[in-house]
Design a protein around this nucleic acid. Structure first.
Lengths: 259, 259
DNA sequence: TATTAAGTATGGGTG
DNA sequence: CACCCATGCTTAATA
């Protein structure tokens, strides 16, 4: 059985001939599908290192982005691989089904020779999700609004936004000395862009309120962002997202009790 | 279609119901097979870090050693995973097919929930091969015997073995000063064991020939092995296996020409 | 078993 | 494109 059908599976072949497997691999490559093969193969790699893997049964995964993974039945790591961006082609040669994955810079070549394919599956994956941090920025904002002491003792939120600069997830506060403080929240690593955004923000406000402070609130910050932050006279406060998550949960629980 | 048949494939299901998929996963786990699933799933991880991966199509690989890999259609790295040795179980719960992989020390939990399985394949892989270096130690020995200058200028092999110490793949030489030199060959990284073996060798010979030298010949050496080597007064000579390979090829070519 | 170093590390931020 | 750095790094070597 082959070709588009139910679900997103294009090919699902059991013990195909090498010719059938070759056709399916070719079609998977032109359609840029995810391809998995289980078969008896031999692998040779030359590039940053060199290796030969003698005949044995393995799982091969070829991804639409040109990644190739060769897995044995043990271990987290593939025994051989090729990174994303590799150019992949296939041929029938000397009685083998051959799949080559080539990369330039660094020059690397991976050659897989099959004498037998036990199973072949290809599919189109629909997956728009990215790995998510524990909290959305909106949730982090809620936690900080309810627990400003996480950033600094004596901090009091005074307004959620500031006229002209809406659209950013920021919080305005006054510190224990009564000075204005702008918080910029990030639910993942804060980079230089975050720092310069906060800087533009803060320097605009300085014209009105010269003693304004700016603090990046994030689980972590890149080294260069931290350096820029210091030269611009801004501040960084690390927050533990797991801690914030549990505070958010407590807050939700107490709200539902009140209902 | 399910259960043992041709080749080494046990299950090969296309768009199974969650019940069918669950049964196949259970059987794959008890039989310790390699299992691949393509399906619509949601993933949550808690352990050294925390993450949530929202609904999307992915490839899941579960290995006989307890490794779990969750791959999206891009990238070399799995988006989520569990290392070898994890304890894996499956259940049907709240309309989902749930697969959990748990590890103690460090405590980690990976939970995969499927609403739809497009394809499921399980197989027994027969694979005794390990990844091989470019040269066997016997081939490396041949290359060094024919090209002793690769180790040191003026080196001359004098005997392949030394009475009492046979059984090791080593080479005896005299250097340009006529002193005895013992070579210990390794076709991969030389470790402390290799160094101490060479040391035992050399110190025995020292009783007869006090000026004997010992050299490890290998593509590389571990840091600790190098430290030990220096304290024991031994030497290390790095060889390029690719270069050795081409020299071996040349040698074979010239031999076949003579025939 | 814990610690340290190596890897075809990979992947992201930055200049 | 190059470099530097973090990673749920993983894995092997070593104390």
């Amino acid at each position: 059985m082959t070709h588009s059908l139910e679900g997103y599976i294009y090919h699902n072949l059991l013990n195909p001939s090498l010719e059938e497997a070759h056709d399916a691999v070719k079609e998977s490559l032109t359609r840029t599908l995810l391809l998995t093969l289980i078969g008896l193969c031999q692998v040779s790699y030359q590039g940053r290192a060199s290796s030969e893997l003698d005949w044995g049964d393995r799982l091969i995964v070829i991804k639409p982005d040109g990644s190739v993974l060769i897995h044995q039945s043990q271990g987290y790591e593939p025994v051989n691989w090729q990174p994303p961006g590799s150019i992949i082609n296939t041929q029938l040669s000397e009685g083998y089904l051959v799949i080559k994955a080539i990369r330039r810079k660094p020059a690397e070549e991976l050659i897989i020779r099959f004498t037998k394919v036990y199973a072949l599956t290809s599919a189109k994956l629909f997956d728009t999700s990215k790995i998510e941090m524990h909290l959305t920025e909106e949730e982090l904002r809620q936690v900080i609004l309810e627990n400003p002491h996480l950033v600094e003792e004596g901090l009091r939120p005074v307004a959620k936004e500031w006229g002209d600069f809406s659209g950013f997830i920021d919080i305005f506060c006054r510190d224990k000395n009564g000075n204005l403080v702008v918080l910029e929240l990030k639910n993942e690593v804060a980079d230089q862009q975050a720092v310069s955004q906060l800087y533009r923000y803060v320097s605009s406000i300085k014209k009105v309120s010269p003693l304004v402070r700016g603090i990046i609130v994030a689980p972590r910050i890149t080294k260069e962002a931290r350096r820029l932050l210091m030269t611009l006279g801004l501040e960084f406060k690390q927050v533990n997202l797991s801690k914030c998550r549990s505070l958010l949960q407590k807050s939700k629980d107490s709200q539902s009790k009140l209902l």
